[in-house]
Design a protein around this nucleic acid. Structure first.
Length: 428
RNA sequence: GGCUCCAUCGUCUAGCGGCUAGGACGGCAGAUUCUCAAUCUGUAAACCAGGGUCCGAUUCCCUGUGGAGUCACCA
């Protein structure tokens, strides 16, 4: 049994790193034919963003990461309160009435032991009474090694805020036990607070899940962890930019996990089947989109014309059907479509002077040219075939890189093509 | 600064004491071709440093260096 969970807080769209965490958690569970749970951690009312939960759910569905059970922490406050009180009763936690600090504005504190821990208060926030001179440790299933801390370096963390809401340190642990989660897979940023969680688990009693901390995805340029603030890393944005969900998923699954045989291409189903917990990577990968582009191009080319037609937002489906075969191999991202096909829809602005002889010859022999029967005659005229067609290409498309030009003219139609050639001829 | 994690081509990685250190993306070259792509072929490119252990270290241990994360009544 491998029950996992993905536990986002509803503070925005789905971060690419969160997508990866969700993917791995999903795959771990499904590989074992078990349940993947979505748990929304909305215990900080101040930070919550309206609609974020629905957006998150929606995005997960787009990627095919369907959950078996769903929980909302704000609906479970009584459970956390009860757990916190038990910890106080057992002497493992205490009430505190100190004013809250905020590391962002106050800087870090070296005070580990809270002044309220021995005051025997009976109201306020509830904090963990961290024991002295103990060692806490766990086996990290991502790093495949034992990791430990001395409790003397662990601070009396807040478990229940004075507003009655739990912090992550309490809520997540209570839920992981209660929901019978077997494997906690989370970001590396949680590693430093793991000793707190280990203590909470111990005092709460019950089976502690296995814990694994994923590597951080780094910005390719700066080498810093990807962040919402500095980087544009929302999964939704990639989707909007024309990346396919399967490409994004395939790319992200190989950032921090690799199989023994170095296979690269996996559908979600195949990944579920082939997943191996030993494939997790310990070092932090960098996010380079060159490979993402390659994956995207690959999956795009894999699509049938019909599928592609559905994906491209263009009303004239018949025209689309004609154009598509010409640009399919040239598409790296769906959103390249407009740029790659603009000349199909409007005449290009030609400013350069073109070879008039080429144009005249093309106009006079249009039908032969289209059939590809003009090559020999072009050569006899002493022209390079490449030069000749480049003139035509620019006259028709306005750019040096296009699909095969005769096929392009075929799609454009005889009248329109000749019109463009004549227009250039007049200017040359 | 304390604590913790990490370290193989530019990037993602295989390797789990003995290998010409392998693959993929990207690069470069070539083939194909009316251009650009796509496709195919070839090619350059890496074990952070210093000590150990061992017959033998990329691999195990230590130290250093470098990188990352974190130190809230945020998650």
């Amino acid at each position: 049994m491998v029950r996992t969970r993905f536990a986002p807080s509803p503070t925005g769209f789905l971060h690419i790193g969160s997508l990866r965490t969700a993917l791995y958690a999903y795959v771990m569970a499904k590989h074992d034919n078990s349940q993947f749970i979505l748990r929304v951690e909305d215990t900080d009312q101040k930070r919550e963003i309206g609609g974020a939960t629905d957006a998150l759910k929606n995005t997960l569905k787009i990627f095919g990461l369907n959950w078996d059970e769903y929980y909302l922490q704000s609906e479970r406050l009584d459970i956390y309160l009860k757990a916190a009180k038990k910890l106080v009763t057992d002497g493992n936690a205490f009430y505190c009435q100190c004013p809250p600090r905020n590391a962002k504005t106050d800087g870090f504190s070296q005070i580990l032991r809270d002044p309220c821990r021995n005051k025997n208060l009976d109201s306020g926030a509830i904090k963990l009474k961290v024991p002295d001179n103990e060692t806490v440790s766990y086996f990290d299933f991502v790093h495949k090694k034992e990791i430990s801390w001395e409790t003397n370096g662990v601070y009396d963390a807040t478990l229940l805020k004075s507003d009655g809401f739990p912090t992550y340190h309490l809520a997540a642990m209570v839920d992981d036990i209660e929901m019978k989660i077997t494997h906690i897979l989370r970001g590396h940023d949680w590693m430093p607070s793991t000793p707190i969680h280990l203590l909470v688990f111990k005092y709460l009693g019950g089976d502690r899940p296995e814990i694994g901390h994923l590597s951080d995805i780094l910005n390719a340029k700066t080498g810093k962890k990807l962040s919402k603030r500095r980087d544009s890393v929302m999964a939704e944005d990639f989707l909007k930019a024309g990346y396919l969900p399967e490409a994004l998923l395939n790319f992200v699954m190989l950032l921090g996990w690799a199989p023994k045989d170095n296979r690269e291409l996996y559908s979600l189903e195949e990944f579920v089947k082939e997943f191996d917990i030993n494939g997790f990577q310990e070092a932090n990968p960098r996010f380079e989109d060159t490979k993402l582009k390659w994956f995207n191009g690959h999956y795009l080319r894999q699509k049938s014309d019909d599928e592609l037609i559905e994906l491209i937002d263009y009303p004239d489906k018949d025209k689309l059907r004609q154009i598509l075969p010409l640009i399919k191999d040239r598409l790296a991202v769906l959103s390249d479509f407009d740029q790659l096909t603009s000349f199909f829809f409007k005449s290009p602005e030609i400013t350069a002077r073109l070879n008039k002889n080429h144009l005249t010859f093309a106009i006079d022999n249009y039908d032969k040219m289209i059939k590809g029967e003009l090559i020999e005659e072009i050569k006899t005229k002493g022209w390079k075939v490449g030069d000749f067609f480049m003139t035509i290409r620019i006259a028709i498309c306005g750019t040096r890189s296009t699909p095969p030009i005769t096929e392009t003219m075929l799609v454009l139609g005889r009248d329109e093509s000749i019109k463009r050639l004549i227009a250039c001829q007049a200017k040359s």
